[in-house]
């Protein structure tokens, strides 16, 4: 798994049936990558539903959040619509798990539950691997963003 100080590998992934996202296009912004195993986990303790509520805290730190799993674009679309998500879910679908592998968080056919905070220059400033069944929450991400703001 990539760590603080590594350069974040660039990628282009499908965000929706008519939208692609390239990491390097987001230079100038902090980027939070939230790898997760699958869409459609239980609602009230769902990690993506939680982040949907915490976007405004991330935005205060000039940060955009991207969810990434090996689910396909249509699955993501249905999930995002059902949960009313206001951020992009990227499909690491073809070749399956390629980006997750580059970040060292692919195992047993799915992305692990892993978080990366990437600075506006494309360097990883914080990463965290959560037990797969445990929602890591947002406190670690916010602490990382605050630490970065202090050291700039």
């Amino acid at each position: 798994m990539l760590q603080k100080g590594n350069k974040a590998p660039d990628f282009t992934l499908v965000a929706s049936p008519d939208k692609m996202i390239t990491l390097s296009d987001l230079r100038g912004k902090n980027v939070i990558l939230a790898f997760y195993p699958a869409d459609w986990s239980p609602v009230c303790s769902d990690q993506m539903a939680l982040y949907n509520e915490t976007l405004r805290f991330f935005e205060r730190h000039n940060a955009v959040l991207l969810g990434i799993s090996v689910d396909g674009k249509w699955c993501h679309k249905a999930f995002a619509k059902d949960r009313n998500l206001h951020f992009d879910l990227l499909a690491d679908f073809e070749p399956k798990g390629a980006v997750s592998r580059q970040y060292g968080v692919y195992k047993d056919g799915v992305s692990q539950r892993a978080l990366f905070v990437i600075d506006d220059q494309g360097m990883i400033q914080w990463s965290y691997l959560s037990p797969i069944s445990e929602n890591p929450g947002a406190d670690g991400i916010l602490q990382a963003l605050e630490t970065m703001a202090k050291t700039v």
Binding site: C44, Q47, T54, F57, N135, P136, G137, A138, D139
Partner: peptide
Amino acid sequence: DFESGIRSGVNGT
């Protein structure tokens, strides 16, 4: 309250 929850590591309800 919500923000204090985030700070405290609340990850769901």
